[in-house]
Simulated scan of single mutants.
Amino acid sequence: MQLTKLKIITPDGVYIDDLEVEYANVKTSDGQITVYANHTSIVSTLLIGDMKYEIDGAKKYIHLHRGIIRVSKDQIKILTQRLYEVDEKGQRIKK
Rank of each mutant, 00 (worst) to 15 (best):
L83M: 14
K27I: 10
E54S: 14
L47E: 03
I8C: 11
M51H: 02
Q75D: 12
K5A: 10
E22V: 04
I8H: 09
S72K: 10
A24Q: 01
Y36G: 00
M1F: 12
L47Q: 01
L3M: 12
I93Q: 10
I62N: 06
A24I: 15
E22F: 13
T45Q: 08
G67P: 01
V26I: 14
D17Q: 10
I76C: 11
Y53R: 02
N38T: 02
T10H: 11
E20R: 08
H65M: 14
K7R: 15
M51G: 03
Q75P: 05
I76Q: 05
H63Q: 07
L46W: 03
L64S: 00
R70I: 08
V43E: 02
L19P: 01
I78H: 06
D12I: 09
V86L: 11
D87S: 13
H39D: 03
S44T: 01
D18V: 11
T34Q: 08
I16R: 06
G31M: 04
Y15V: 07
H39W: 10
S41F: 09
E54M: 14
T40Y: 06
V35A: 05
H39Q: 08
G57Q: 05
T80C: 12
K59P: 08
Q81T: 11
Y15K: 07
T10V: 12
V14G: 02
D17R: 07
T45K: 08
D56Y: 09
T4M: 11
V86R: 07
D56E: 12
H65P: 00
K52R: 09
V26G: 04
Y53D: 02
D12A: 13
T80Q: 09
K52Y: 02
Y84F: 15
I68Y: 05
E88Q: 13
Q81L: 15
